[in-house]
């Protein structure tokens, strides 16, 4: 083992020689590994973004309570107060007609013109109730017993859908992870085997001179590591760029989608991709070495 560090210079030189002998396929495999890892990076980021969105919305679980048309402001405020007293309710607030209208204008952005087709304000006033998500059932039950309530809209639908999206991304993440792993390992072990076959005669000479297996194999291991780390760096750079673009696009028209902080998302992704590529590099090289050995 000591010998590996003593001879690091030798190993690096050897690795570069091996890679130079087959420069084009080495470059191509860096690119293809990079593309595959890029897809993985985007999937992982999508997973994290949707998980974050779901988490944010879960934290802000809220219910809209529509009261009877006939109820006056006084009655409505009373209702607000009694709702506040229900366990699990964090806040409850009366949203007037005009505020409801303004909110919709904000959400629709440019498309808010459609609201102009209405002569009257089509929105009714309602009570916005912020609750703890796990208290949802209890709160709904309590509200059922109250009088003057016409209709309750909860955002369980949205939550369910977000949950589904997160779930989808997670499964996609696992599938992509498996696909990326297999594809990278196949490419890599093939490259390593190719390199060893091209150097068969030399390797045989090294063996006959008494070079230990690790001494012969190490440059190829290093090659595998360089190939995947190169691919990983490429993927990380591409994904970082793509995420920055995405953030720039999303921040404008979709302000209500809660995104995880961009910097943390990107640096997390870079770490994951580089670690994945390092592991794949080592495993792939070992597979390549093993398969070359049996020839």
């Amino acid at each position: 083992m000591k010998n590996i560090f003593l001879n690091m210079g030798y190993f690096l030189k050897e690795t570069i020689t091996v890679m130079r002998l087959n420069l084009l396929s080495n470059i191509l495999s860096i690119f293809s590994t990079g593309l595959i890892l890029f897809i993985l990076a985007m999937t992982i980021s999508g997973w994290r973004i949707s998980a974050k969105a779901a988490e944010a919305i879960e934290g802000e679980a809220e219910i809209s309570v529509y009261f009877d048309k006939g109820m006056d402001n006084q009655g409505a405020l009373k209702l607000v107060e009694s709702i506040k007293r229900i366990e699990g309710v964090r806040d409850s607030r009366l949203i007037g007609e005009s505020e409801a209208y303004d909110r919709m204008v904000k959400i629709l952005g440019k498309d808010a013109q459609v609201l102009k087709v209405f002569d009257d304000n089509p929105f009714s006033p309602f009570i916005e109730v912020k609750i703890n998500l796990n208290a949802m059932d209890h709160v709904l039950e309590e509200l059922d017993h109250m009088t003057g309530i016409q209709y309750i809209r909860d955002n369980r639908d949205v939550l369910d859908r977000l949950g589904n999206i997160t779930h989808l991304f997670r499964i996609l993440g696992y599938l992509m992870g498996a696909a990326v792993g297999i594809a990278t390992l196949v490419i890599l072990s093939h490259m390593i085997r190719l390199g060893m076959q091209n150097n068969r005669e030399q390797i045989n000479t090294l063996r006959l001179l008494g070079a230990p297996g690790i001494f012969i194999a190490f440059p190829f291991l290093l090659q595998g590591l360089l190939l995947t780390l190169g691919g990983g760096a490429l993927a990380a750079a591409l994904a970082a760029f793509a995420l920055k673009q995405l953030y720039a696009r999303m921040a404008g028209p979709l302000p209500f989608i809660p995104l995880p902080p961009g910097g943390a998302l990107i640096s997390g992704m870079v770490i994951v991709i580089l670690s994945v590529s390092a592991v794949l590099g080592i495993v792939g090289s070992l597979l390549g070495l093993l398969s070359a050995r049996n020839h």
Partner: peptide
């Protein structure tokens, strides 16, 4: 053990078997 045996010997071949790089 084989590498140790080989390292304890000097070997010369008909076709030299030098490392070209």
């Amino acid at each position: 053990q084989v590498p140790y045996l080989r390292r304890s010997l000097g070997v010369v071949f008909q076709d030299f078997r030098l490392l070209p790089n």
